[in-house]
Simulated scan of single mutants.
Amino acid sequence: MSVSQDISLNYSAPGSDIFVNESSNADKKVHIRIQQRNGRKTLTTIQGIDECYDLKRILKVCKKEFACNGTVVEHAEYGQVIQLQGDQRTKINDFMLKLGICKKAQVQVHGF
């Protein structure tokens, strides 16, 4: 008896970016902010990443890389925003520049 399984794997073509959905429009600023919650607890928010990138895939890699939890929330004014637990400003800045998600001139880091 043979069992056949239909396995679909997502392989990217060599040289393509695995985080890209379709088209690229890299003119906007990317804002990295920190928000104080209560006590020593903080949230890091990333806003302004181009729509061609899959934010859930970026979030999944960031959570594993930075050992924190996070989510993608829909904001009325800013659109989709990534939220990470803790102060991840320098880590997320280095991560996005290393992967080429945005350029150094596009990134603006806010906070205390």
Results as ranks from 00 to 15, higher is better:
2 S>C: 05
2 S>G: 13
3 V>T: 11
3 V>K: 13
3 V>A: 11
4 S>W: 06
5 Q>R: 06
5 Q>I: 09
6 D>L: 14
8 S>T: 08
10 N>L: 12
10 N>H: 08
10 N>V: 07
11 Y>F: 11
11 Y>W: 12
13 A>Y: 13
14 P>N: 07
15 G>Q: 06
18 I>C: 08
18 I>H: 14
19 F>T: 01
21 N>Y: 13
22 E>F: 13
24 S>A: 08
25 N>Y: 06
25 N>P: 01
26 A>G: 09
26 A>W: 15
27 D>W: 08
27 D>T: 12
27 D>E: 12
28 K>V: 14
28 K>R: 14
29 K>Y: 10
30 V>F: 08
30 V>S: 09
30 V>N: 04
31 H>I: 12
34 I>C: 02
34 I>F: 04
35 Q>D: 08
37 R>P: 15
37 R>N: 15
41 K>P: 10
43 L>W: 07
44 T>P: 13
46 I>G: 02
46 I>L: 01
47 Q>N: 04
48 G>R: 00
48 G>F: 00
48 G>K: 03
54 D>V: 05
54 D>P: 03
55 L>R: 06
55 L>C: 09
56 K>T: 07
57 R>W: 02
58 I>S: 07
60 K>F: 06
61 V>M: 07
62 C>I: 05
65 E>I: 11
66 F>T: 03
66 F>H: 11
66 F>S: 15
67 A>F: 05
67 A>V: 09
67 A>M: 14
69 N>R: 09
70 G>W: 00
70 G>L: 01
71 T>N: 13
72 V>M: 04
74 E>H: 12
74 E>I: 14
75 H>A: 07
77 E>T: 06
79 G>R: 00
80 Q>C: 01
82 I>W: 00
82 I>F: 01
82 I>S: 03
83 Q>P: 12
84 L>N: 08
85 Q>S: 07
90 T>Q: 10
90 T>P: 09
91 K>F: 14
93 N>I: 11
95 F>R: 09
96 M>D: 00
96 M>V: 08
97 L>G: 02
98 K>C: 02
99 L>W: 11
99 L>E: 00
100 G>L: 10
100 G>M: 05
102 C>E: 05
102 C>M: 15
105 A>K: 14
107 V>I: 15
107 V>F: 06
108 Q>E: 15
110 H>D: 02
111 G>A: 03
111 G>R: 00
